[in-house]
Design a protein around this nucleic acid. Structure first.
Length: 415
RNA sequence: GCGAUCGUAGCUCAGCUGGUUAGAGCAUCGGUUUGUGGUACCGAGGGUCGCGGGUUCAAGUCCCGUCGGUCGCCCCA
């Protein structure tokens, strides 16, 4: 009979156990803690959306939409997509779920997202993001709020030094248009010096040339016009208010004049927290103001700002968290003790004690297992202990052991 | 989508220029100690050498393909 092959995981997906899972959870727990401090409401949005939600909001020509989405027709023939990011789905919910009445609305969520990419360090096909958004707020205070949230989160994760905030402004539409035209003119003039990719970007989106990683492009990029010369007074004031907010909250930041966003609906503030510890994946948290997105989905003009962070990337950067361990492990010996142990376990767990049971092997094995969990105490119960209604409680660190009446176990573990 | 590199037990790896029954450590299970762990010793189980083809008297070892991991390009979280 042919033995069947055990299935392989889908490429770019992960299963986590032990330290990896602990790290992941530590990031999510910190996020949820800080989220509450900042008053961002917990929301849940679907993994599946109509394909149009992402196609319209991200732009049909972006890499994400044109070649990285997990899209398929469901059984009724509708084209649906597994979210490649959170913002579009939240914007959709803002429109379709009546969330507009709560504007300005501060929301946060986390979960899996999907992109069909070549996996590598810090890059997966199913990856997980933290996400924070403020919808319906045009004020620079919202930008500051969202940035302070990100900054405090990273500090609580112990990444205050390793992740650096790079900040830029893309100005308002008027600014952007003028700057874009100037860039086009500049790059057109140096066309021959540009790489092939950059020449392709020239007509479609000259702003993106600033992103180029081709070293040969850099001299031309360095001499390109800077946005500051094109900022309208409103846009300049807006950016000034954001940086002033950051400064008064003592958040360290660096101006990154070449930091841009490809999509047209981005306005004003754009930022990334960067690191050099993750190889090619330097961005650990990124976001910006997307005042044009809700309109692109057919809604009313709605200023908004938000960010997303990669949970896996943060997990890889933080110090290893303390592993979870039970407070005690029950070691029953013999059938009668086994039966009594189940009752004791249930009782202690109801009282909030984290306790496990070692039920396999001889006593030596059971003690080994108890010690291996990292528990503080082993509670030994055999025939003698049943008679006396008192367990032998062994402190696994000091090796000291004494009899403790069943009724007093909780107190002795807590002590 | 492109490039590089790797793929031997559950895990980490060793197997020299192709040559008899493929090894180690850790882990697992059992024992020395049938009621006491974190040490030591003894023993056991566990491998289609990723998969498929080819070269050869002979392939884990060479060649081709394929799948997967890793790293980079691209893109991004």
């Amino acid at each position: 009979m042919a033995k069947i092959q055990p299935p392989q995981p889908v490429r770019g997906t992960q299963s986590m156990l032990g330290e990896e899972a602990d790290r992941f959870h530590a990031v999510v727990a910190a996020f949820d803690r800080v989220r509450r401090l900042f008053g961002f409401k917990r929301v849940e949005v679907p993994v599946l959306e109509q394909t149009a939600v992402f196609a319209r909001s991200l732009g049909e020509t972006t890499d994400v939409v044109s070649k990285e989405m997990y899209s398929f027709k469901d059984r009724s023939g509708d084209s649906v997509t597994m979210r490649p990011e959170f913002t579009a789905g939240i914007a959709r919910a803002y429109l379709s779920e009546g969330w507009q009445q709560f504007a300005p609305l501060k929301v946060a969520t986390h979960g899996p997202a999907f992109r069909y990419e070549r996996p590598q360090k810090g890059r997966f096909r199913q990856f997980h993001q933290l996400d924070a958004e403020i919808l319906g707020a045009a004020e620079p205070q919202a930008d500051v709020e969202v940035l302070l949230f990100a900054d405090q989160l990273l500090k609580e994760l112990g990444l205050g030094e390793t992740a650096v905030l790079k900040l830029n402004t893309l100005g308002d539409p008027e600014t952007r248009r003028a700057w874009r035209d100037a860039l086009h003119e500049h790059f057109q003039g140096h066309r021959d010096a540009l790489s092939e990719e950059s020449r392709e970007r020239l007509e479609r989106n000259p702003v993106r040339i600033l992103d180029s990683k081709v070293h040969g492009d850099w001299p031309v990029i360095d001499s390109a016009p800077v946005i500051d010369d094109f900022l309208t007074s409103e846009a300049g004031e807006f950016f000034g208010a954001v940086t002033a907010g950051l400064d008064s909250a003592a958040v360290r930041w660096e101006r990154a004049p070449r930091l841009v966003r490809g999509l047209d609906y981005y306005r004003h503030t754009a930022f990334e927290f960067m690191t050099d510890t993750l190889g090619a994946q330097g961005t650990v948290l990124a976001g910006g103001r997307y005042d044009g997105l809700v309109e692109a989905l057919g809604g009313p003009h709605t200023p908004a700002i938000g960010w997303a962070a990669g949970i896996e990337r943060l997990s890889m950067m933080i110090a290893a968290p303390e592993p979870e361990r039970p407070e005690a492990v029950l070691v029953p010996l013999g059938e009668r003790a086994q039966a009594a142990a189940v009752r004791l376990l249930a009782d202690l767990r109801l009282r909030g004690i984290a306790i496990d049971m070692a039920y396999r092997g001889n006593m030596k094995k059971r003690m080994q297992r108890a010690a291996a969990t990292g528990a503080g105490f082993a509670l030994i119960i055999g025939e003698d202990e049943l008679e006396a209604e008192a367990a032998q409680v062994k402190d696994l660190k000091t090796g000291e052991q004494r009899a403790v009446a069943f009724a007093l176990l909780e107190a002795s573990i807590r002590a």
